[in-house]
Design a binder for these strands. Sequence first.
DNA 1: TGTCATGTGTACTACATAGTACACACTTGG
DNA 2: CCAAGTGTGTACTATGTAGTACACATGACA
Lengths: 116, 116
Amino acid sequence: MTFGSHIRERREALRGDDPSFSLRQVAQRVGIEPAYLSKVERGQVAPPSEATIRRIAAELSEEPDLLLAMAGKVSRELQEIIMRRPQLFAELLRQLRSAPDHALLRIVREVRDGNW
Amino acid sequence: MTFGSHIRERREALRGDDPSFSLRQVAQRVGIEPAYLSKVERGQVAPPSEATIRRIAAELSEEPDLLLAMAGKVSRELQEIIMRRPQLFAELLRQLRSAPDHALLRIVREVRDGNW
DNA sequence: TGTCATGTGTACTACATAGTACACACTTGG
DNA sequence: CCAAGTGTGTACTATGTAGTACACATGACA
């Protein structure tokens, strides 16, 4: 599923019980031209900028990180976390590339619970 | 220390016992114009692309991840690791943003030693 | 003293990114 | 039947990215 078809499906689902989720009205609330959103949804142009993707995510109640990933991007915020300690995070990420989900979740939980 | 001044210092240090580390010769081995490398080293233009930074890192025996970070970038390879499981890695990175170095190292070591 | 290598200034370029502006055709409710 | 709202095609644009090409001035050394 591409970025475009994903947000199109999401928007059409929301329009089911709220007609204000027409392409034009969503475009207006997001702050872009309807023609542009149309092309984005059909994958006729590359996905928008991070800022625009975030506004789309908010409008469609989607996870920004997920939409950004579908658009082939990683949020600038996360990139900055990595850039402060590039070697450490580089090794960590490479180490975790093929770790199973539950291992990642376990680390998240343990760090959050302050066992460090 | 900026990207430019860092690689300039590194290059000049290497030139100490090897005159083949002149700006022109390094530029040639890296595959870019000397004038361009000059501007990059003095911060007169934005840092080069990831591919060029990698070739510079190899030439100067530096860590690619470190140079990329100094250039305000995160390697495409790491970004792709994140994009495969964006939510999990997003939460993990935010969780670890202010964790001390030794905590990160400990995770790296434990994952590598297969306690997962 | 000339030539060779050094670093740098100026001008230019190709391609990508991130959109806007406007016109068009369809359909649908009053 | 017509006016309003819908999605889309075409054309255009501003800014950023990632450099190249060439000329110039300086210093060393043979």
